[in-house]
Computed example of a mutant assay.
Amino acid sequence: MLGELNKKEIVDLLKSQFIGRLGCHANGETYIVPINYVYQNNAIYAHSGEGKKIEMLRKNPRVCFQVDEVESMFKWKSAILWGTFEELKDMERQQAMQGLILRIMPNTNDPGRDPSHAISPELRNSLIVYRINIEEGTGRFEFHEEQ
């Protein structure tokens, strides 16, 4: 059976996952990249070093975010969301980073590592912490009862 996820099911999917794909577009180019995230209060929180993604997000803050849960070819859920990128500062930045650490660390194979993704310690304070304010979304699923 194919179907649509309702809002609660989309939120449950967002809360259950911690890796999604962020799509951005600037200067006639589209870029899609996987990110670690945490979902809270109708927003996606993530972090990044400087680079192509951040450059593009600053030029055009309108984004698309996709997350899925795939158990098999015929049992999956997927949601696509649209929203706006916003860099976080000061206390809000610190709180979001703490939330990311708490969400990501239990899902690593090496709990002694932090979610800085090989960014040197002297550059960690320059990490960009951001929020995607979700404005709309849609979700689909496929599920077949075993016979």
Rank of each mutant, 00 (worst) to 15 (best):
G3I: 08
E4D: 11
K8G: 03
K8C: 01
E9L: 13
L13N: 07
K15R: 12
K15I: 09
K15H: 14
Q17E: 14
I19W: 10
G20P: 04
R21K: 13
L22G: 10
G23F: 08
H25L: 01
A26I: 08
V33E: 01
P34M: 04
I35M: 05
I35C: 07
I35S: 10
I44N: 03
S48H: 12
G49I: 00
K53E: 02
K53R: 05
M56L: 11
R58S: 00
K59M: 14
K59A: 12
P61E: 06
R62K: 15
F65Q: 07
F65N: 02
Q66E: 15
Q66C: 15
E69I: 01
F74H: 14
W76P: 02
S78K: 10
I80R: 13
G83E: 09
E87Q: 03
L88N: 01
M91C: 02
E92P: 06
R93Q: 14
I101G: 02
L102D: 14
P106H: 07
D110P: 00
D110M: 01
G112A: 15
R113M: 11
H117Q: 09
E122A: 12
E122H: 10
R124V: 14
N125V: 02
L127A: 07
R131C: 01
N133D: 08
E135F: 09
T138N: 15
G139A: 07
E142I: 06
F143N: 13
F143C: 09
